[in-house]
Write a protein that binds this DNA or RNA. Structure first.
Lengths: 167, 167
DNA sequence: ATAAACTTTCAATAATTACTGAAAGTTTAG
DNA sequence: CTAAACTTTCAGTAATTATTGAAAGTTTAT
């Protein structure tokens, strides 16, 4: 496999995996491209490489910046804006985990709390609803906490004691 | 909040969260409904409760059964088929984690392996591609392993030592 | 102030994904 | 074997989501 083929394979695979970490295809592809680039890229260059429109590029770059994954880099003497992504995978994982927790998991926990705290009217179906949503709330809470803790360990968290403990 | 409202809120919230754990809305809603039901439900009952068509119900029940989350329950003397879901949240999490690992994460790891093992031709861009995809591969591998290990602890894994260690 | 260089916005459109419903298929009772 | 009771399939359609491209907006150089 040559460079070009490998590059395309990486961008398309990582792009289609976008859903798994909660972002859309174009967004994931732009990030992938920047992730393996040796220098900051302009909007033109991104459009050209990924064959997507100016509008699409602009909108998705903006979203990536909202997530805190991509940053603008101003090159002295250049009028154009250049973009780079966070290059450290652990830091990237930290950002993604934090954002997903905030945007998706926390709101769900709130709903589960509300639902599981309705008045117990003594009927079996109410009891079941309370019991099951409570269990789900506890699990979601625990997973969210664990995820945030794991990912907040700045250095080598996965290879450290927690991970080794479980081998 | 009364039972009916709480129930609807739970089903719609958990349903829209479907993407987060990698299944579609109808699938998630059917599972939610079964999850808080005190008894096995027939296709009719599911269609009626969720206001979805027979075809949709059938297709999504099948998918839930493929995932191993829902099972058919034959009630003696009844012609209809009845459905129940796994009621234990930990077991549910175990199934979901295992399936997503198999369906999505493992194939990605394979691609990352292929891409990161292309021949180093000495150019900076090839070196960068190799370095970055390797890092991503290692991270994905570690997360996948961790997830599977966590989730394979049948009893109370989250509240046990690993979790406490990190508080 | 003005014009060139560049970015953003957003209505229109395309692509994708989900859903319906009726026909075909299957199973069971008699 | 036949009919009733039930489930599955799938072509057509609807709903949702992503993308385009051109007009409007912004910034900078002169």
């Amino acid at each position: 496999m040559e460079y070009q083929e490998a590059k395309e394979k990486f961008i398309s695979t990582w792009g289609s995996l976008g859903t798994l970490w909660g972002i859309n295809k174009a967004m994931a592809q732009i990030q992938s491209l920047l992730f393996i680039s040796t220098k900051a890229l302009s909007m033109e260059e991104i459009m050209e490489e990924l064959k997507i429109s100016r509008g699409n590029t602009s909108m998705n770059l903006r979203q990536l910046m909202d997530w805190g994954i991509v940053t603008k880099e101003l090159i002295p003497g250049e009028r154009k804006e250049y973009f780079t992504t966070e290059k450290d995978v652990q830091e990237l994982a930290r950002i993604v985990a934090k954002e997903r927790s905030r945007r998706e998991i926390k709101p769900v926990i709130k709903v589960l709390e509300d639902v599981s705290s309705i008045k117990d009217d003594g009927t079996a179906k109410t009891k079941e609803l309370i019991k099951q949503t409570k269990a789900l709330k506890d699990l979601t809470d625990d997973l969210d906490t664990l995820m945030n803790k794991l990912v907040n360990q700045k250095q080598n968290w996965l290879t450290k004691s927690v991970f080794k403990l479980m081998k």
